[in-house]
């Protein structure tokens, strides 16, 4: 199949970027989007041009390293899929695509389609954990947890830190990401002890990083590859007011 690609090229964080056009006519519909870019890069390198910088690692939707915008779709035109899990069969033969990085003030562009999401680590650093040192833990079955709670905690903990929620939000809010971690830990008996401090500090860091505030448009939930629910944002807000 063939596709026309308009790809965001930006030399460095401070450089000005623009779309550049590439034409590929020897594609296979089973290729994933990163595989298509690998293929394009091989050509560019041989033509003496600068290959496109894009991030990916696991290529199975779990590491959270990939992600860009395809024709206005965050990650993918498919529902709840990461960029790496998007295959060319999702596009029409001959289609023209626009690929550009996730855009948010708190995620500066490093080069082309690569962004810097370290702000997420800094939010977690402010309390996205249970303060247990190695060796302190009691017998695992001494902390009982209902099946349902364990499943809900898992649902919240499944976040891969990809940043799609931020990119999809008109306010570039990180509420879904932060809310998921707060909800995950607040649901567990062992996480309750630090709940107050956690929510205050993490929310403050979220603001300090320049993420916008949440106005409940639900855009994040619609693109999240892990189906993280906005109910966790409600939990976060409740925890915040409690604190």
């Amino acid at each position: 199949m063939n596709l026309t690609l308009n790809i965001w090229r930006q030399e460095s964080a401070s450089a000005k970027g623009k779309f550049e056009k590439y034409y590929l006519d020897d594609l296979d519909s089973h290729m994933s989007v990163p595989e298509m870019l690998d293929h394009l890069n091989e050509k560019l390198i041989k033509e003496g041009k600068d290959p496109i910088a894009f991030d990916s690692d696991c290529r199975e939707g779990i590491c959270g390293q990939c992600g860009f915008v395809i024709n206005g779709h965050i990650h993918s035109p498919e529902k709840h899929a990461t960029t790496c899990q998007t295959h060319l069969r999702s596009f029409i033969d001959g289609e023209e695509l626009y690929l550009e990085p996730f855009r948010a003030k708190a995620f500066p562009i490093k080069k082309d389609l690569c962004i810097d999401r370290k702000a997420f680590d800094r939010i977690i650093a402010k309390g996205g954990y249970i303060s247990v040192n190695t060796g302190q833990a009691p017998e695992a079955n001494s902390i009982l947890l209902s099946h349902e709670t364990a499943e809900s905690a898992f649902d919240a903990a499944a976040c891969i830190g990809c940043g799609a929620c931020v990119a999809s939000c008109k306010n570039a809010s990180a509420a879904l990401f932060t809310g998921a971690k707060i909800a995950h830990l607040a649901m567990l008996p062992q996480g309750k002890m630090e709940a107050e401090k956690r929510v205050k500090n993490m929310v403050a860091q979220m603001d300090a990083e320049g993420f916008g505030s949440c106005t409940f448009t639900k855009a994040c939930e619609a693109v999240c590859p892990q189906h993280i629910s906005i109910a966790h944002i409600v939990t976060m807000n409740r925890e915040y007011w409690k604190a």
């Binding site: 249970i130 695992a140 079955n141 902390i143 009982l144 947890l145 099946h147 364990a150 903990a157 996480g191």
Partner: peptide
């Protein structure tokens, strides 16, 4: 397993609440 549970790893549970 004790350490991981204490950290908040949500391992699968039986309906009784046990791992």
């Amino acid at each position: 397993i004790d350490q991981a549970v204490a950290q908040g790893v949500p391992f699968a549970r039986e309906y009784s609440g046990y791992l």
